[in-house]
Design a protein around this nucleic acid. Structure first.
Lengths: 206, 206
DNA sequence: ACCTGAACACCGTTCAAGT
DNA sequence: ACCTGAACACCGTTCAAGT
């Protein structure tokens, strides 16, 4: 084991450039998708292209930094829902949020799924934390007898991601996201359960 | 209707080059996905890069030519299933095949969904034909009381495509495609099985 | 008619030169 | 330590020159 040197605080300009780059990247990715030009990102951040590469050695590293934030937010949201709602509702609310996020950024779902299956990824830890938070909601809903016992956490991510990706492709599909989501969630419910009477009422706001 | 000039048969070498290009494109796209290098395609076809562009003015045109074949195959398969199996089974079998095809070629599902929503696309006709063939299977299964009446053809394509896309991302997911597919199809089934007396409430506003 | 490859304007990534 | 932009090897697309 190497003893790390004190890891002195980064220079103020370096820290500032990194923040500007992340900010610019979030904007550009939201506009153009995950395969946006990195030159555009550097330009928007008003920073040399080399500076971008100094902070993020490649596109994947930049996307990872963006995703890392999101994973932490989602893990936190899972804990909130777990406190505030009954098990089935908590799970559905969280999946809806997860799914909507996947729709917002074209190309990010691919990165997410790749990360989830690659233990070497620097994001593996935060991704796993989020996944476990979601799996906790699932387990609770299964204990309550509302969700099929053979559904796994991996299924959950796969389907929520798939619906999110789908609804990000065309505006007409975005409008149907709630409906698609409801169909998928119905597939997760315990067969014959009395949940069939009341469809999940999409709150209407986006 | 414009009267087309005799549309003389293309020169033999042109026809041959076009075939070689399509063949090479199918291989390269299967290996590298829809964003594969067009130079690679031309190289594999042993044809000048300019020749590729003479036959297909851009990447989209090339992908369209590949997709067109597939649409026709799928429409034909729908008619076969309709003859050979009972309504629910026919629908499920067809969806499975559709879904597996989406998984096989990374990036094609996006093109497909875009085509489906763009009447100006040269593929719109064959895409619509396939879509109607699938919608026919859906309608039959709904008449038999097996599939929720509020499910539309658009839902069907969206979900089957989403699952296919998903399972093409990682080998671990490919192994689970059947399972994911089963979960989604369960969401389409009439709640409570065939004995369902009433359609799900809240289906009126679609 | 059709084919070809050089040419153009981009891109991701690297790295020597600056401060 | 950090920043910068020129440089390299690609790419999609166009087009003058060939047969």
């Amino acid at each position: 084991m190497t003893v790390e040197p004190p890891a002195r605080a980064p220079r103020a300009d370096a820290r500032r450039n990194r923040d500007r780059l992340l900010e610019a990247a979030a904007q550009v990715v939201a506009e153009q998708g995950a395969q946006a030009s990195l030159r555009d990102v550097a330009r928007r951040a008003e920073v040399g292209l080399g500076t971008l590469y100094r902070h993020f050695p490649n596109r994947e590293a930049l996307l990872e930094a963006l995703l890392g934030r999101r994973f932490e937010q989602l893990a936190e949201r899972a804990r909130e829902f777990e406190r505030q709602a009954e098990p089935e509702q908590a799970l559905v609310d969280w999946l809806r949020e997860f799914s909507a996020g996947a729709a917002a950024h074209q190309g990010l779902p691919e990165t997410l799924m790749a990360t989830l299956h690659d233990p070497a990824s620097p994001l593996h830890a935060s991704c796993t934390a989020m996944r476990e938070a979601g799996a906790g909601l699932l387990a609770a809903a299964q204990r309550a007898g509302r969700i099929r016992p053979d559904v796994t956490g991996a299924d959950l991510f796969a389907l929520a991601n798939a619906v999110g990706w789908m609804s990000g492709l065309a505006p007409a599909l975005a409008e149907r996201r709630e409906h698609l989501f409801a169909l998928v969630v119905d597939g997760l419910r315990t067969p014959g359960g009395r949940a069939a009477g009341e469809p999940p009422s999409g709150a209407g706001t986006d």
